[in-house]
Write a protein that binds this DNA or RNA. Structure first.
Lengths: 129, 129
DNA sequence: ATTTACCGTTTACGCATGTAAACTGTTTAC
DNA sequence: GTAAACAGTTTACATGCGTAAACGGTAAAT
């Protein structure tokens, strides 16, 4: 599942508040992004067609639910971003991103813990991506 | 400067080995990516037109050089990736990426140091991205 | 019952992109 | 010097994307 920029906006909204009706999406994105209702309807339609959303009929309208997992899409997008920009070499990418990120002390600590746990586990096996 | 997937491939090559002649690019990408020479020529032309490459005439052919800095492009691409996929919230993105990255002990240490230096500096001022 | 509002479907349209052939002028090899 | 190779420019074309209007049917309001 490959999502375009605009599709990510729609999907992020739906992942956060599914199941959702078209009117809600239109309302949210209309005010947040200045999208016309026609535009939102097109996006929803395309996302259903490409299998990213499913619909349950509720009376005469639909309820939209994500048909793909956010984490899967994130993984794919990350992979593709790393490949494109860093030739798939994760380390320089991470260094760059961390260097330029604005992180709270709390988030820094989370990252530290994560690094520790990776150190431990990598002494036996490696992981992916 | 907004680079497409294919354009990143070309630019990455040129950043790594500039100044370069068309024939070199054609040779590299032809074998690595199965691109026809016509395709490579189109890419080069478009990149010059959009200002990502400049040319110095060498006799009758050109020498291509990047006209934009790699770090700037990386910064923009990172920003746009984070915005799109994580709504601009860097921390979850980094946690995800670090969690899924395959990193050597050495790279883990580099990251640790980076986190430390961020901790120190953020006690006074914040940084960007 | 007629108009209105709403929702889903179809159609539209220009620009970007991936992919590449065709054309043109020059250099090189025979 | 004539043909082949090469480099750069033009043209091409299908698909995806952002953006949206138009159409059609049903539900709600008057």
């Amino acid at each position: 599942m490959q999502l375009s920029d605009a599709e990510w906006i729609v999907m992020n909204l739906i992942w956060d508040s599914q199941p959702t009706e078209a009117s809600d999406v239109i309302a949210s994105l209309g005010s947040e992004n200045q999208w016309s209702d026609a535009t939102v309807k097109t996006m929803l339609h395309r996302l259903v067609k490409k299998g990213a959303l499913t619909t349950q009929p509720i009376g005469k309208k639909y309820r939209y639910t994500a048909a793909v997992r956010r984490t899967d899409c994130i993984r794919r997008a990350s992979r593709s971003f790393l490949d494109r920009v860093f030739g798939g070499d994760a380390a320089p990418a991470l260094l760059h991103l961390v260097k330029n990120a604005k992180l709270s002390e709390d988030e820094l600590n989370q990252l530290r813990e994560l690094l520790e746990s990776k150190s431990k586990s990598s002494r036996n096996k490696g992981s992916r991506e």
